[in-house]
Design a protein around this nucleic acid. Structure first.
Lengths: 238, 238
DNA sequence: CCAAAAGTGTTACAATTACACCCATGA
DNA sequence: TCATGGGTGTAATTGTAACACTTTTGG
């Protein structure tokens, strides 16, 4: 009743205004639509270097420039599903670490028309990837060697690298790359590659063990030409 | 040449496959499009409580339920611009703290059809807001009192509250709410309201002063019925 | 002089960093 | 026996958390 009363005092212009600005009060069919894509920043580690998967663009404006792996979002799939699909198509992998980072909605970021793109990043085991690199030279690139990418992909890549580093340091997502049984050296190698710096072995061990995620299997490495390291596994509660 | 050679060995199915999955190699006009919206979680502080601006939905499915402030993204505006526009339209404010958080792309999140929505959050000075609450009951709600919202807006709100708390603690965004000259009590009140808990006054002062963002103006509060606090301002280097 | 909030310093605890020697293995 | 990397502890530093009394103002 109080609201009805107020409405009497609302000008037509105010009404019009209020009506038009709230999507949640209206049907959406007649509204402008845009093309949506996902871009996946697929990270892997090889020889203690953080690498990212790139492909050659062949649209005219960016001929021969490298780009991230992306695709348009289909009509009947969510953003997360689209990102999983791109990852699965390019690497053959599913069930890997994949997270949304940011959505890039500038009007002119794509030369062929308006494309809003949501960036995801993934951390995958490169040795398990099944690359389909017949066309467009799908390849891994060390991040320190990457020069200019097509579109706004340098920006996207930089944001995703920051996010990956944050996730490795604070959420220990590097565990997701490990085999069921692993040495602390393997884990430390991943951390060092992602962070791009060496870590103190003693402090690293102390920290990881204090997290109480892992337990000693009693087994050790074999076939190494030095003292073999202990092998650990995730605690069942993790 | 190496690539051309490889192509000879690529099956038609592989070619088809590779071509279709990379948006960056194709024109986009013929692709499926979706409706894009932004949802703004507009935070304010009143009486030491964190509040958020909500409005009543009037689409049938959610009649009378509260929703965040959203709108469709226009054809010629970026996501950031759309979020600024929503904020400006609802509060009359521009130049406030506003950041993108996450994009929600589930297929059935909106009952009227597919709407992908990018969530932003803002922290505004409630006393400067010029609310247009004639229709749909645009109002502030204390976050601890919020029950069920329309759409997936509880989820969006929760993620944005977490983000705001992180930003206040680690990036000190509460400074953005302060007038040019302020007391440490004002700053602490904002922190306490956002975090939902009391902070130790001595530790808080020590921490803030150690950041070296602010300097003493030499002035003190007036018109308070107790010992007046010192007034500070941001250092010019900040 | 009373009520209310401002201002202030020390101690304990936790987390992080720096650092050097011996050990187990394969070659 | 040598080269390689594994395994380990301690001390210094830094950051965080807990805690109580005196001061200044208005009423």
């Amino acid at each position: 009743m109080f609201n009805a009363y107020k409405k009497l005092y609302m000008s037509d212009r105010q009404k019009e205004h209020t009506k038009n600005i709230n999507v949640h009060t209206l049907e959406v069919d007649q509204y402008p639509k845009v093309t949506l894509s996902v871009d996946c920043v697929i990270f892997g580690i090889e020889q203690e270097h953080l690498k990212v998967m790139l492909i050659r663009s062949d649209i005219a404006e960016f001929r021969k420039q490298w780009t991230l792996l992306g695709d348009l979002v289909h009509e009947k799939e969510s953003l997360d599903e689209a990102a999983k699909r791109v990852l699965q198509t390019r690497t053959g992998l599913s069930d890997v670490f994949l997270e949304q980072v940011h959505t890039f909605g500038e009007i002119n970021r794509h030369p062929s028309g308006r494309v809003v793109s949501t960036a995801y990043y993934a951390l995958v085991n490169m040795t398990k990837c099944n690359l389909n690199n017949y066309e467009h030279e799908l390849h891994w690139h060390a991040i320190e060697d990457i020069k200019e990418l097509a579109f706004d992909h340098n920006k996207i890549l930089n944001i995703c690298v920051d996010r990956l580093r944050e996730a490795v340091q604070n959420r220990y997502v590097a565990f997701k790359l490990l085999p069921p049984v692993f040495s602390l050296r393997q884990l430390q190698d991943i951390h060092e590659a992602v962070l791009g710096k060496r870590l103190d072995r003693r402090n690293f061990r102390k920290k990881i063990i204090s997290l109480d995620f892992i337990e000693d299997t009693g087994k050790i490495e074999s076939d190494v030409s030095h003292r073999p390291g202990k092998l650990y596994k995730l605690k069942s509660s993790s």
